[in-house]
Design a protein around this nucleic acid. Structure first.
Lengths: 224, 224
DNA sequence: TATTGTGAACCTGTTCACAGCA
DNA sequence: TGCTGTGAACAGGTTCACAATA
């Protein structure tokens, strides 16, 4: 027998991992429409990718389809949810309850997709009176006790850029190993901690780049 | 002379385009700190990439550095801003003024990075009384006239998923060619229209996937 | 027969290592 | 001498096209 990693540690390409949640969403949509079976072509269309890519992606998880028939929607949905790890809930803390923090706290998509916001923290005492989305806004000083109490592994940073690094440091120090960063700044964290960033203005700038090119008709240099 | 596309149409790899705004932000930070010159190593550190990648990326724009010395911060900053197209302001409309729409309307990062929110639209008449970030929330029916009046090319969708496709259709019909979509759904648009999506729960799911793996110590299958 | 699962070809992006130059 | 700019090697991701098979 050759040396092999256990089934659960098959390594799935990062690009595929990033699409699994899209497939999961598409499958949930199909299930809600009453579809019980779908071909790779149909699922790919719902997810906005081509069918070859979808099949290749699913092949990294295993052989969950039936040749000549397609995929069972509920079965595949469960398999992908299990692979991602959202068959049970992940407790999450949100730090920084400004406009964006409010929006995140109220976002129903977290709850419905395997995440549970267990606490909202803000460094500004003026905000501690507030109740947002049914949760008290608490002091940032409570971070350690909340993380320990709820075994929080994932933290969301929605503070201004200047505060983000120190918030990340505190999160890492008390055991958080995955961070979703909305502050427009680069975070440095030790190995073993994952950071994903969402930068709203970067997305707009990427659109602006392409928009600018559209205006330029090849051969004509000046437009009024 | 060989056939060549004009300077302004040099094609820059998509991966590079996505990083230019990060470099721009890093340069703005360096300029604020009073730094006038920086090496690829320093700038790369500020931007959170390695220096080889940074130099390769910048080489697609042209030769803006000085061998043996480095880059002039202000000069490079201007060149990147020009390349992205954010030396002048882009008018933007936001549709869907719920929690997220509020946060986006109030986000100062747009204004400071070359974007100007010219209108907030919502289909719900109950919201039309509101003033958010100094702007009246207006009827979605005003979309066409606003887009025409301000020559809007970029639209932001922050509606619930069910409404997103019809909003996108209306946007495309009245001439918008770039869309930033926050609704958790796949949009279909004609060729020539760019869509970028930001899906908050997908980002968390990607973190959950990696988090789940961390818990599994190779060789031990059960953890308490 | 219809559709999956997958090697192989292809393409894009990253890293290396050093030539070129101030 | 020190740092940029860049070919060349490498790695990762996508698409093709078809063998396997329910």
């Amino acid at each position: 027998m050759t040396a092999r990693t256990p089934d659960s540690a098959r390594d799935i390409p990062e690009a595929t991992v990033a699409r699994l949640p899209v497939y999961l969403r598409a499958l949930i949509g199909l299930a809600e429409d009453g579809t019980t079976t779908c071909s790779s072509e149909e699922l790919a269309a719902s997810a906005g990718v081509n069918s070859a890519k979808l099949r290749k992606d699913l092949s990294y998880l295993g052989s969950y389809g039936t040749r000549g028939v397609g995929y069972d929607v509920e079965y595949l949905r469960y398999q992908i949810a299990r692979e991602i790890g959202v068959t049970q809930d992940w407790p999450v803390v949100i730090v920084g309850i400004g406009n964006l923090g409010h929006a995140l706290a109220n976002y129903s998509g977290f709850r419905s997709r395997g995440f549970r916001v267990v606490a909202l923290l803000d460094a500004d005492p003026a905000r501690h009176a507030e109740v947002v989305a049914g949760l008290d806004v608490r002091s940032f000083e409570d971070l350690e006790s909340i993380v320990a109490e709820h075994a929080v592994a994932i933290g969301v940073i929605a503070t201004p850029a200047v505060a983000a690094q120190s918030v990340a440091d505190r999160m890492v120090a008390c055991g958080i190993t995955s961070i979703l960063n909305f502050a427009p700044t680069v975070l440095s964290v030790p190995d073993g901690v994952d950071v994903r960033k969402v930068d709203l203005s970067i997305e707009l700038q990427i659109l602006a780049y392409h928009e600018q090119r559209k205006a330029i008709v090849p051969g004509s240099e000046s437009v009024s």
